[in-house]
Write a protein that binds this DNA or RNA. Structure first.
Lengths: 236, 236
DNA sequence: CGATTTTTTTCTGTATACAAGTTGTATTTT
DNA sequence: AAAATACAACTTGTATACAGAAAAAAATCG
């Protein structure tokens, strides 16, 4: 039962995506071709193709003659994020309501099951990933090739930013998480009944909740510390 | 004066982009690795990396064990296009007005000069490409990494669709082209005076003009296809 | 001793050879 | 003659070897 290269490539891709979304690979981290090549049993050629693709999707940054690096998150990008997210999210959910297929709705319900399970007994990573999966499915539902690139880009950083608040520190934040779960249920209902107006409104609400969580976390102690920015400022 | 691989790679990339935007390479066309490899003096490895990148940007589709192919444009995607474009364009122009640098404004003016020249004495391809360049600069101005992926994806198909109507057949269509040019001027003015509201409104206007041109061209022989985008109303 | 230049080492980019898969054609079979 | 199969030519995917660029280390000079 030997694994073929195709599978190994997909595994590498998945591994990198998960590692980046969960911040196990932090923004700005350099990737070691030789090492990954070794671990995943791939030569550098297909490995570099994976890098290119992930760069295209916004997971990595490629610099010529330098190693690939996990895409950065700075305050500027965070500002852009706050600006783009509400708009794109509501458009996507509106389209999801209009275009979702039966199968996709089942997928969405499955994703929501996973999210609930993660809220009950999962790690912060589980929560970020299952939430990401949920929204990813809504993207598939929308099926709009012109909006998806931005939506998927947003989802990446939403997961990464979210990793900070999927470790609720206060009762309020825990409450917000279960509120988020309820909103997911409402979103499913809106999509199932093809109510695009409701779906768009829920996107707004869901986003506002997310934003509150983010602000709650980021604002206090991050006045001086830029988000994902290298904690590793060279020790002088 | 030997050209290094870096340059040849960039040339290949530019060549493919231009060919795709101008429909010299039509949607669905298969690309021949061996041939391109030969023509541009690149081995298949860097060539395939270019393919991956262009696929990520939406120029190409990659299918495993099959040749890379110029991304398709179907009527379904056209519908999606009509839906996403107004939203993204106005957001981009609004941000462009807020964030444009002096240098970028100069670039935009240059681009507009080029567009005017193309209207006066250029080919349809020249018009599509210079118009594309103009909007590309507005994208740079916006500087929003989350919106740019979708915006750039839209620009690709806008150019391709546009190729059909940059060959004006009627006096009205010619008039529309010079109107488009005037709108470009107004856009520059709005950006220069940092009037983001005006910029967003101009995006709407500019888009509506574009849409009229497209409908004028596409409608005749595509009567069965609902173009007029009653944007997001629920189909019965 | 510190700064700067040179050498060595390491890593990225490209070419090429080979393996695996796909497509087209010819032959066989019914 | 049509369909199915087997074979051949070609195309795509991967591994490896080599060339060139950056980074690290060592050596030189002020």
């Amino acid at each position: 039962m030997k694994e073929d290269a195709k599978t190994r490539k997909a595994e590498l891709m998945e591994h990198l995506k998960v590692s980046i979304l969960t911040l196990r690979l932090q923004p700005g981290t350099d990737l070691d071709e030789a090492h990954l090549s070794d671990v995943f049993g791939l030569s550098r050629t297909p490995l570099r193709e994976v890098f290119r693709q992930l760069a295209g999707e916004g997971y990595l940054d490629l610099r010529t003659n330098r190693s690939a690096r996990v895409s950065e998150m700075s305050y500027t990008t965070l500002r852009d994020f706050f600006l783009a997210a509400p708009m794109v999210y509501s458009a996507i959910l509106r389209l999801a309501a209009l275009n979702a297929t039966k199968t996709q709705i089942e997928d969405l319900k499955d994703a929501q099951q996973g999210f609930k399970a993660a809220l009950r007994s999962g790690s912060a990573e589980d929560r970020a990933l299952t939430n990401n999966r949920f929204h990813d499915v809504t993207g598939e539902m929308s099926g709009n090739v012109y909006l998806l690139p931005s939506f998927n880009r947003l989802l990446i950083d939403h997961a990464r930013i979210g990793m900070t608040f999927y470790r609720p520190k206060t009762a309020e934040m825990s409450g917000n998480l279960s509120l988020a779960s309820q909103q997911h249920d409402a979103i499913i209902a809106a999509i199932e009944s093809r109510d695009d107006g409701a779906a768009a409104q829920l996107a707004e609400d869901h986003w506002n909740l997310s934003r509150d969580q983010i602000e709650m976390y980021v604002m206090p102690d991050a006045l001086d510390v830029p988000m994902g920015i290298p904690p590793l400022s060279k020790p002088a």
